[in-house]
Amino acid sequence: MAARTTTETVGAHEAPVPRRLLAVATRLFAERGYDRTSVQEIVEAAGVTKGALYHYFGSKDDLLHEVYARMLRLQQQRLDAVAGSDAPVEERLRAAAADVVVTTIENLDDAAIFFRSMHQLSPEKSKQVRAERRRYHERFRALIEEGQSSGVFSDATPADLVVDYHFGSVHHLSTWYHEDGPLTPQQVADHLADLLMRALRP
């Protein structure tokens, strides 16, 4: 898979060391796979020493965690802003549903690396990531429950299943979406968000 734009795309040797290491690690993990990329290859490509890597990241495992965590932080910030607005709940949910699609596509290598390599995280990091994802999903689910309790959305399907339905589609984006395909990120986001809203229609 060719490396795509991520939240940390930077010039080769112009960025601060942590960002440079993360950009290089993302590219190598995407091209070769996490388990086939060595720490030595990362530091050589970034033009730094192993000591510099271990100063900012305790291990290769920390790099893998940060690849995903930076995307999730962005998505959480955007979801919190949307969910906390004064807009009607149907507008807030649709905006949140579309945003997670767009931000995932814009950071597709990050998402692909994570879902391909999550099982290789240490137990501690895996637990941390699951907690971070759960917080995001719970905020998203709260929007669905708000609409269901007020009668705006159908309550025929439990909110947990609705969340799984939408995020199942999001998690598979890295397996089929291509930048040169017929749909833009926003068009894909609009289609998937509309599917979700139709499923919740009373």
Rank of each mutant, 00 (worst) to 15 (best):
P123Y: 09
Y177D: 06
H171K: 08
Y136I: 08
T103F: 08
V129Q: 07
G47P: 06
Q120N: 06
Q75L: 13
P16D: 04
R36H: 10
Q75M: 14
S126R: 15
G58M: 07
E124T: 15
I113A: 06
E106R: 15
A87N: 07
I42K: 00
D180W: 13
D160K: 11
A2I: 05
E41N: 05
P18W: 03
A46H: 03
S150N: 04
S117E: 12
Q120P: 03
A98N: 02
R32F: 12
D80Q: 14
V39W: 00
V82D: 02
F153C: 07
K60W: 00
R19D: 09
M71Y: 01
T9S: 14
L183H: 14
T9H: 02
V17A: 15
N107D: 14
Y177S: 05
R70L: 12
G47I: 02
P185R: 03
G147K: 00
D86I: 12
W176N: 04
D180Y: 11
E132W: 05
H119P: 08
V163H: 11
L64N: 13
T103E: 13
G33S: 10
E146W: 00
Q120W: 00
A23W: 02
A96W: 01
Q76Y: 08
H137D: 11
T6M: 08
R135C: 11
V39F: 06
H172L: 15
S126C: 03
K125R: 15
H13Y: 13
A156C: 01
S59F: 07
Y177Q: 08
R201K: 14
V17S: 12
E41L: 04
S149D: 02
F57N: 05
D99C: 05
Q76M: 13
D35N: 11
Q148A: 06
S85H: 07
S122I: 14
D35K: 13
F57H: 13
R130M: 15
R130A: 15
P18M: 09
E145Y: 01
Y177W: 10
A52C: 07
L108P: 02
A69R: 11
V24K: 02
F114C: 04
V102L: 09
F153W: 04
A3Q: 01
T49Y: 05
D62V: 11
I42M: 04
F114K: 05
